[in-house]
Amino acid sequence: MRTYLLPSLKLTIVLIIICSVLYPLLIAGIAKTSTGGGKGETIAVNGKIVGYANIGQKFTADKYFWARPSAVNYNAAGSGGSNKGPSNPDYLKDVQARVDTFLVHNPGIKKEQIPADLVTASGSGLDPDISVQAAKVQVPRVAKIRNRDEKELYELIEKVKMTPLFGFLGPEKVNVLKLNLALNQHN
């Protein structure tokens, strides 16, 4: 064992320098040329940062398109899911309560129109997106409170929605922050 101790120690020091100093510095350097410079891509309105493109925000007001429920209340200081099991009775009560709340705030919508992503928490608690159906089902409410034409809002969703990569890789989605920003700008 003693024969190997000194080479092990020296090799450890050399590898810390290579893997933990040079490597991250190289990546940080390359990242400077990317959008956001490796600090995370931000979205600004009139020079003021309103959020990060990839980090979801809490939207609960009726005048905005709502985001998904979050186990960390959309505070990106941390992250995480609810970790509720599918048979947990308290969890199922929570989901039912969210369905009921949604129906109260969206009169005229039938419950089979509510997609599951609107009433379930994401894995990160910071999901920036909702499904296209989840955006569409909120149009009547948002249109009414903002005195806007529903058709115009459906078109807005079509404009903001992201189609799958190469047309077939991944689901269609709508970034809630971008949709609500577009909504405000349109007024």
């Binding site: 998904r68 609810s82 509720k84 599918p86 969890y91 379930t120 928490a121 997106d129 991944g170 989605k173």
Partner: peptide, 8 residues
């Protein structure tokens, strides 16, 4: 099943 999953 969307609980604990991400839309994207």
């Amino acid at each position: 099943s969307m609980e604990g999953k991400e839309v994207r």
